[in-house]
Design a protein around this nucleic acid. Sequence first.
DNA 1: TTGATAAATTATACCGGTACAATTATAATT
DNA 2: AATTATAATTGTACCGGTATAATTTATCAA
Lengths: 239, 239
Amino acid sequence: MKDKMLKYQRIAEDIEHYIVHNRLKQGDKLPVLEELRRKYEVSKSTITKALELLEMKGIIYQVRGSGIFVRRHKRKGYINLDENQGFRSGLDEFQLTSEVLKLEVMNPSEEVMTNLSISAEEEVYYVKRLRFIHGQRLCIEESYYKKSVVPFLNEQIVSESIFNYLKEGLKLEIGFSDNFFHIGKLTKTEANLLALRTGDPGMYYESVYHLTNGEAFDYSKLVYNFQEAQFYLQINSLS
Amino acid sequence: MKDKMLKYQRIAEDIEHYIVHNRLKQGDKLPVLEELRRKYEVSKSTITKALELLEMKGIIYQVRGSGIFVRRHKRKGYINLDENQGFRSGLDEFQLTSEVLKLEVMNPSEEVMTNLSISAEEEVYYVKRLRFIHGQRLCIEESYYKKSVVPFLNEQIVSESIFNYLKEGLKLEIGFSDNFFHIGKLTKTEANLLALRTGDPGMYYESVYHLTNGEAFDYSKLVYNFQEAQFYLQINSLS
DNA sequence: TTGATAAATTATACCGGTACAATTATAATT
DNA sequence: AATTATAATTGTACCGGTATAATTTATCAA
C-alpha cells in the first residue's frame, strides 16, 4: 500500500482523511499554511505541494490572503470521471461486478493499431465484459491491452478489477488518458446486452490509457446504459 | 490581454506556441530543463512551475530520467471539457453562434437556490439560449447568474460569449466548476428546439461555476443534440 | 553479440529564504 | 454609523541550493 510514500503525499492523504473524518463541508476553513507546516514539521514548499495535490483532486481550494477551504459537492451516486481508473469514487467504492463475454489474444484491427500506436504484428489482449452496478447492467466494455505491457490475463483477473491488477499486481503506473465520447442510438446487439431497446439512447465512450512514460497500453470502448449511468466531473481553471 | 503575466505563465505560453508553431507531435522531445532554464534566464523552480502547468493542460508529459515530451491526440472536432469556459478548444475556436430565447431577472427556484447556495430573496439573471455549431443546432442552454456577481446583462452581451464578457468585461476570475451529466430521451419541447424527434437521445449536462474565492455564481443546464456533440476529456493521474 | 555493471543524464523531492499580492481586521476619520 | 485609510494576515511567485530516483548511455566481461 505505502510503497514509500512521499512526504507531500502522506500529508495530503492525512488532510483528506481529516476532512472526511470530521465531516467538513464546502467552505469550511482549514488551518493556515504556517500552522500546517508546524504540525507536520516540513518546509513550506512541501505543504504547498500537498495542498496543490488536494486542489487538483478537487478536495480543497485556496484563496490568497484568506485561507484554505474545503471543496465538496453534494450529489451522490455519480461516477467520477477524474479518477476513473477502476471507478473509484473517492473513498466509498461503487458496487461493481462483471460478466466476462470474451477473453483472447489477437492481432489488432486498424482502429486498435491507430489508438495504441502499434503495428499489425504486435499482439493484444481483447477483453469484452458486461459490467453491473448494484446488480443493474451499467455498460458493455471492450478493451485492448498491449501484450508487451500486460503479458498475462486470465478469467479470474478479468472478472474483477483489471486496473487494480495492473497497479497492484503488475506495478504499472498509469500516467494519463485521452477520453472521447458522444451520444447515439443503440444497435440491436448492444440493446440486447443492456436489456434495452434498439434505438434507445447510449453513451459511447472511448479511452486511451498511457503509462507514465507516455506509452499507450490500453484502448477501451464502452457503451453505457442511459438509465444507470450518471457522471461527475470537476474542472479547475488552469493558470 | 497580458494584465501582468507571471513569469511561469509567459514561459508556458511560449513553449505551447513553440510546440504548435513547429507542429511537434506526440512523443517529440523538448529541450531539457536545464536548457530551458538558461534560455529563459529564470530559476529551476519557475521552469518547473511552467512545465507543471503545461502538464495539467495536457500539452506535455514529463518522464523522470528521460525528458520532457509533447502530448497530443489526433482527433479533431471534439469539444474539450477541460477548458469549457466559453468552449475554447485549444487555439482554434469553434464557430459558435447563439439565438437568445429568454433574458430576464428573476427569483430563484428551489433547484437554483440549492445549486448556487442562495436564499429566495437573492435575484438571478435567467438566460435561455439555443446554441449553434457551424450553423447546426448544438444545444439548449439555460443559465442562472447571481445578480450580485453579474449585475448587468443585455441582449447584446448574451448573444455573444457570456464567459468572455465575464472575464474581459467584469474581470471575474473563475476558479473551478462542478459538472454533472447523464443520458436521456428528449421531451417534445426539447426535441422541437433541437429539430429532433421526441424520445431521441440527449445529453443532460449541469454545471456549477465558482469564482476563485469559492463562491458559486452560475448554474447552467444544457441539453445536447446527439448528432452534433462529441466531447474530449484528458485525465491525469494525480500523485 | 550479448548481457551485466557502472556512469552520466534528467526530472523530482525537499529545504528555507525574500518579496509580493489579495484579503481581512483594525484604526482613524467624517 | 458609515466610510476611508492603515496594518496584519495569508497564500503565491520566485530564487537557488542539496539530495535522490528513474532512465539512458557508456563500459566492460563473457
